[in-house]
Design a binder for these strands. Sequence first.
DNA 1: GGGCCCGCAGGG
DNA 2: CCCTGCGGGCCC
Length: 292
Amino acid sequence: MANYTFGEIDNVKEGDSFSDRKALREAGIHLALVAGIDGNQSVGASSIVLNGGYVDDLDLGSEIIYTGQGGNDANTKRQVADQKWTLGNKALLVSEMSGLPVRLTRGFNHKSEFSPKSGYVYGGLYRVTDHFEEKGKDGYTICRFRLEKINSFENSLQIGKPAVPELFTTSERVATTVLRIIRDTKLSKRVKELYDYKCQVCGIQISVKGIKYAEGAHIKPLGNPHKGEDKLGNLLCLCPNHHVMFDKGVFTIHPSEYSLIGIGGELTFDHKKHVLDQENLKYHQEHIFINH
DNA sequence: GGGCCCGCAGGG
DNA sequence: CCCTGCGGGCCC
């Protein structure tokens, strides 16, 4: 059993170059010589390599949409089969749940403005913030992960410093076991008031001295690559637990019958004032709901 | 530059 | 023990 180290490695800093995978291994950054995901299903993933092995990869610098492993033809680098939520993909899921950082190394084979021309460059620490399923460019199901760079702001949250006030105007960063972004727009306030801050799944209302708390949950997620809209038909009023369960794909909502799939109970909602977008529900069922 | 195959390390 | 994986070198 290999001993995986999480976080920064002594004597290696962001931007350091390595000639090949063997050098990366010797530095202690990434142990596997071929596989792009280091780690296992019990401790999670400690490191990944982004090197053009999968055509659907997207590198935006501080945000990466990474393709999981499997179903890939070693010679053509194209998908020839569906991927599954096993092996390294499961390790990345474990990392998403634990919130432990994942080292990122970029290789010369991936073409982006952040990739090196030759060899491998250590790119710092990232957190797995999201996972979903997609049909890749080659027509097969791929497991995908959103990784977000851990910056000084997020590190400051880790040691309990208060968040920067101006960020509260559009979004509120909340440190939980897994870092999430809870947007508190006028719309999400509206959906909460519509249900009097009661969770549409379990009915619980969180209230302290009459001050109520609930979360506005987007059905089709905002941000890349989903690009869901911030509109009432794309929002639910949920308690924190059911918000996490919904976002992580534990349950979904039937696009036309509005029944709950994956957990018991039924969704309460105001058919007149709150028209749920069926396309977005379909999107959630196909891409986010993986508990099948 | 593309195809091919040998490789190792580690997980299951 | 077998299998797989975002290498890599060598051939053409």
